[in-house]
Design a protein around this nucleic acid. Structure first.
Lengths: 258, 258
DNA sequence: CGGTACATTGAAGGGGCTCAATCCACGTGG
DNA sequence: CCACGTGGATTGAGCCCCTTCAATGTACCG
């Protein structure tokens, strides 16, 4: 591990294009025409930055745009009446925010920024225009949402049928594959800007127990997490423990879409 | 409760159209033009019936069609290496099957029929045609998938942050609202064709414990489940216990789509 | 009549929670 | 410069919810 040369401070590989990860993602499903690419660039015309720890979407409020996450990490969550919090999903560069949170008169979930974040708002009207003028892009978005659903499915398995140790191992591997797909991780390590309490809320556990499980992973010499940096020492064993099969995260060509 | 007149044996209200619940659902987002409705009917031209307990989609195999569920109940699931099973979602009339299960070279999940089922296969090629010729339908499908994502989100909350009693209560209320939306439930009762073991696999519990929780609900005079029939005696208390808020299941007009 | 599927109930054990204390890094104000 | 507060990590002790293992009942069906 770590036998790939690191480039600079981060040691992470460069994404194809730093600022438009969603375009790269859709292009991976099916090559984009010039017109399609131009339209997608147009959607990214206005960008906003949001500081870490700020709320991006507040449950209950109305919204009229989806948000394309261009840079940074966000999480979608729900707070229960008794104060418990469940993280519903983590958003990385190239992901759509506000799907499904915003698609109601009042947002059904909240979304918060883990790190400083760059987003491009896409008003619903533009989204309709996209479906009308560029049906292949519409289909690609449909595909992208299917991929997200596959990720949620695996989270359901995680919460429903795996113990704390396996859950943590699975999340570590999932985030590695997802971050690497957008050029934010190197071969065996990455920056995961989540506190242990955030990890706990994503895994349906308590912060204290996550801490114990991290210690176990370290003692087994599988993973070390220090100062927000995850280093995977033995991916093969980890994958067996977690029951991790990465094909659900792979982006494939959309069959028959030329 | 039960103050609505029941019609015939089932005591359930009639859906708008028995055979095309998906069309009704999309029409609820935005009124369909004649051409759109005709195309949707065309998609339903070929139908297949599948007997209860049969596999509809087998994980790993390739598929080239989505399936529209016209009648019956299905579940999407995953089996782990140690034999544990997690149910990822329940499909009711009007739902799309194979999203996301089929959208990979090999299906990532399996799908099985709970009851006898009627499905209409929609080859991927037809789906592309739909997006090309009827972008409003494409957008409506996108919306529908967002609604499904909202349901999965609530399941994540259920598995991650609610105890067994609350989980069961929540599922009972969710299924009531969803079945009623497609005319398969009356005001306070419905047929839920799931065994206790299936309920357990949907809730991340064991069959034995589900049995105990059902007994608790009965002893508290909140719900009785007998012979596959769920009767809700006190929906208000149940909703408080479960933390159930039904707006995430409501189908709203797609804003701005005329 | 035996076999299967499903429901039901009990007893014991454990995995993760709750409550609690400590430690460390960091920023802030006096 | 130091006192203090805060956010986060770490560790321990006891408890409880749910699992595991087990046994029994019951309806249906070949």
């Amino acid at each position: 591990m770590g036998n790939l040369p690191s480039n600079g401070d981060t040691g992470e590989t460069k994404p194809v294009s730093i600022t438009y990860p969603l375009i790269d993602r859709l292009a991976a499903y099916a090559p984009l025409s010039d017109a399609e690419r131009a339209f997608m660039l147009e959607l990214h015309a206005t960008k906003r930055t949001i500081a870490r720890h700020r709320e991006i979407i507040v449950a209950g409020r109305p919204y009229e745009a989806l948000l394309v996450l261009c840079e940074g990490v966000i999480f979608r969550y729900k707070i229960l009446a008794d104060g418990k919090r469940q993280i519903l999903g983590l958003g990385l560069p190239g992901d759509l925010i506000g799907f499904p949170a915003c698609l109601y008169n009042g947002a059904v979930n909240s979304v918060s920024a883990v790190t400083d974040v760059i987003i491009a708002p896409v008003p619903f009207a533009r989204l309709f225009e996209l479906f009308r003028r560029f049906p292949r892009l519409g289909l690609a978005l449909f595909w992208a949402s299917a991929q997200e659903a596959a990720i949620y499915s695996e989270h359901l398995v995680n919460l429903g049928r795996r113990n704390a140790y396996q859950r943590l191992a699975h999340l570590i591997l999932e985030m590695h594959v997802r971050l690497r797909a957008v050029g934010r991780a190197d071969a065996s390590s990455y920056c995961l800007p989540l506190t242990q309490d955030l990890l706990a809320d994503a895994l349906g556990l308590t912060g204290q127990h996550v801490n114990r499980m991290i210690r176990c992973l370290r003692e087994e010499e599988l993973v070390t997490i220090e100062d927000r940096r995850v280093v995977i020492h033995n991916a093969a064993s980890l994958a067996i423990i977690a029951g991790f099969e990465k094909q659900y995260l792979m982006s494939e060509q959309i069959p028959g879409l030329n």
